[in-house]
């Protein structure tokens, strides 16, 4: 019985080891960020060292459950994951619905796809009194 569940135990231990290693690496990167930020503002004096120790203790050991996730989110946003979400939820449905194509379905995303923008521009221009009057030719 023990030998039968040993692969499962090894797999679970490996997952736990992987998770703890990645948390440790994440803590190192957060510590590097703190050190870089404090030195950038205060230089390398004794006040900077005290501040680094204090902030590191609070961030790494007291409230890492919050700052770890916040750091990962900040890094992902810095690398442009918001653009991916915009592509997924707003631009992509417009393309897939045939926006701007001939014979396709009307655009699903009215605000962000090119098809939606074209439709709104045409509707805007078609309204009477909306078209800008050009000056008479000289």
């Amino acid at each position: 019985m023990v030998f039968e569940i040993m692969p499962l135990m090894f797999a679970l231990l490996s997952i736990g080891e992987f998770f703890s290693d990645m948390v440790f690496v994440l803590k190192i990167f957060v510590l590097l960020t703190i050190i870089s930020w404090v030195i950038m503002h205060l230089g390398k004096g004794p006040l900077a060292i005290v501040l680094i120790v204090g902030i590191s203790w609070f961030v790494l050991f007291d409230a890492f459950w919050f700052f770890g996730g916040t750091y990962v989110l900040m890094m992902l946003l810095t690398l442009g994951i918001a653009g991916i979400f915009i592509d997924l939820f707003f631009v992509f449905p417009g393309f897939a619905a045939g926006a701007g194509g001939s014979g396709g379905l009307p655009a699903e995303a009215k605000m962000s796809s090119q098809g939606g923008v074209n439709q709104r521009m045409q509707a805007f221009k078609a309204k009477p009194g909306r078209a800008r009057k050009l000056p008479p030719p000289m």
């Binding site: 992509f92 897939a96 194509g101 014979g103 396709g104």
Partner: peptide, 9 residues
């Protein structure tokens, strides 16, 4: 690319 490939128009 996937969006253009799945395009219906």
């Amino acid at each position: 690319g996937i969006g253009m490939g799945m395009r219906k128009g």
